[in-house]
Design a protein around this nucleic acid. Sequence first.
DNA 1: TGAGCATCGGGGAAAACCACCCTGTTCCTT
DNA 2: AAGGAACAGGGTGGTTTTCCCCGATGCTCA
Lengths: 219, 219
Amino acid sequence: MHETFYIAIVDDHTMFRKGITALINLFPGYRVLFDAANGKDFIHQLKPPHLPDIVLLDISMPEMDGYATADWIRVNHPGICILALSTMESETAIIKMIKHGARGYILKDADPSELQLAFRESLSKGFYYNDAITGLVLQAVGDLFNNNTRELAPGKLTDRELSFVRHACSEKSYLQIARDLQVSERTVDGYRESVFKKLKVSTRVGMVLFAIRTGMVKL
Amino acid sequence: MHETFYIAIVDDHTMFRKGITALINLFPGYRVLFDAANGKDFIHQLKPPHLPDIVLLDISMPEMDGYATADWIRVNHPGICILALSTMESETAIIKMIKHGARGYILKDADPSELQLAFRESLSKGFYYNDAITGLVLQAVGDLFNNNTRELAPGKLTDRELSFVRHACSEKSYLQIARDLQVSERTVDGYRESVFKKLKVSTRVGMVLFAIRTGMVKL
DNA sequence: TGAGCATCGGGGAAAACCACCCTGTTCCTT
DNA sequence: AAGGAACAGGGTGGTTTTCCCCGATGCTCA
């Protein structure tokens, strides 16, 4: 008697989602439990205790992207194996996804047999990485040993930081923001640094996107 | 006894291709004859007189894109029904594909049932267009009659510019975007400059805010 | 008595921004 | 048929802004 493993698929393109679903249902020993258009949809459709063994997670999605969804899964259902599925071959995307807890990274133009292999490997060994990206994985692992700030604290912002963020959601330069807030350029630089750390972003655009997604600023 | 219609799929993403294949093979009365990664691959795999009734054609592909492939099919096998399959919702892409002989245009995030409907309609009526797209088709036809040169939209972005903007709504640097879009850093710099002018913004943050406010990119 | 917050500063690398330059193609108008 | 937009793609060189270290002071609160 063979055990059946359950898969969930999260991707914003319906056609791709349904296609992959049909494909996976042809794999012996695997069934698609459900599919979702984004992270929010996924969370909404999750009905414990019927959890998927593996989540196939696209990175770029509206509403709630792959990184945010991976965070949520890691916190709320650490037993679920996260496999990232993306067209992007960019190092940063891969490393970022690994840092967010993905156990594997599969390119959308890989062969379906690789997908099946990824299922097997990640369930038995706990991870699956393509030869092409193993190097990147090792580098990311190194980073985790060095400066791992793995607390995913919400990171509440202070009043000053909040008003800084609101000013930053504009075309103003940091120098202009400093003048508006009646503080020095260095002080604003300090706001930036602490906000980046708290929101876990690395660029001003990332901060703006975060602020809008979470409703910190209204448009 | 029902007749069986044969489908060919042309798309550069293997995973999507194989997924759609599995999906279509579940449709009663339809079989996937073969799938190809691009136009050249498609031509190479064609073995007359075993021709597909319908070709599902992606637009953006390496080697030989959707437009070129459509041209070739129209010239060499006019009997084959071409259905465009794309993520792009841009007017120009749709109109251009229609001009190249596509009998229908289906978005990748449409429901599979729409795909099945498109098969039925295009085989019986000779064409299939979504309600949302019919308007564009009519407008395109209208333009052919009265030389309508209205540029009602203030800053209409091209396809490349649009995908640039979408990539820019992230923490990626312009260099990374250049690599993702497979163009040089200078070219991306050109996109930036023309988009800034068209949207009347002066910084990347301004562009991101504009894109979100107008729904150019969804969050 | 640290921890966290607010405020400043220098220096430097990277990214973003800008201004001109060039090649082609396609499509439309004259 | 010729010209001119508009488009995709690439290039040099330069300024400004962002980003990220290294500090520092003083204040409050538990």
